[in-house]
Design a protein around this nucleic acid. Structure first.
Length: 266
DNA sequence: ACATTATCCTGCACGC
DNA sequence: TGCGTGCAGGATAATG
């Protein structure tokens, strides 16, 4: 579920609860989540260290620990981080948990178990994670420069974390719909005014979703329930397009579903 | 150099 | 009701 807005909201929510606290003990309940790293190594490295801060890079979460150690968490499809009032209450089906010095716990929940937890390699991560779309660095000029070089279909380009970090299947589809761009069309073939519209849509969609996610995640234990973003096309195959009322279509791109309106998006 | 496919996991919606 | 199938808001390695 989580794309940039949800991941950012999760980070903000847990940051005020765990920052400055020391991890007394870590447990990894599903050992495959650390592959190819050794889970016992991560447990050993985390114990006794203070959580100095929590950072987000695209959809990646970094727990910056004392002594220049960082844990790298990726929520993938269904992961979530919560703080629970007593470490003994940890939910079933969690990937891992960290007992804090006040006996609360930071829990990495994940019903689908695709999330990952590793010791971070900050240099490698910085090299493979693209520009932050909600940062000041994401200017139209910068976007135009990237787009002109790309012959990938628009949707594939937007999903590629090396270009823009944090868009996923939902918000990529929604941004393309808002800008009336065919997801199959390579960005290099669009006129600059269309690209400008897309740039604006990416920012607007993510900002709107972030505000909703912040509201939904405001409680320390809140899980992401329900739809808080007013999706126009995502998951709406066969339903009427909100603009022209013709049917929304679903196609496959890069092994993922893409939803769009063939009439409005060209 | 590209694009598609398989894979990691589990849960759930859907059709028979 | 029960069971098989496909699919999922992600990322990556393998394959064509």
């Amino acid at each position: 579920m989580p794309e940039l807005p949800e991941v950012e909201a999760v980070c903000q929510r847990i940051r005020r609860h765990v920052r400055g606290l020391t991890i007394l003990e870590a447990q990894i309940l599903r050992t495959h989540i650390t592959r190819p790293q050794d889970p016992s190594e991560i447990v050993r490295m985390a114990a006794g260290r203070r959580i100095d801060d929590i950072r987000r890079m695209g959809k990646n979460i970094l727990l910056l620990l004392s002594g220049d150690v960082a844990l790298h968490i990726h929520l993938r499809m269904t992961g979530n981080l919560t703080v629970i009032p007593d470490y003994r209450l940890r939910p079933l089906r969690s990937n891992a948990w960290f007992r804090l010095e006040d006996n609360r716990a930071l829990v990495f929940e994940d019903p689908r178990a695709l999330g990952t937890l590793r010791l971070a390699d900050l240099g490698a991560l910085a090299a493979e994670v693209g520009i932050e779309p909600l940062s000041r660095r994401f200017t139209f000029a910068r976007f135009l420069e990237m787009a002109k070089q790309s012959r990938q279909p628009a949707k594939i380009f937007l999903m590629d974390q090396r270009h823009i970090a944090g868009l996923g299947n939902i918000y990529a589809a929604e941004a393309l719909f808002e800008a009336s761009i065919d997801p199959r069309k390579p960005l290099a073939r669009l006129r600059p005014d269309r690209l400008q519209a897309l740039h604006a849509s990416i920012v607007r969609v993510l900002r709107t979703a972030l505000e909703s996610a912040q509201a939904a995640y405001s409680r320390p234990d809140a899980f992401s329930e329900g739809e808080w973003y007013p999706v126009a096309v995502y998951g709406r195959e066969g339903e009427p397009c909100p603009r022209c009322h013709r049917r929304v279509r679903r196609i496959a791109q890069g092994g993922r579903s893409t939803y769009f309106c063939p009439t409005c998006q060209r």
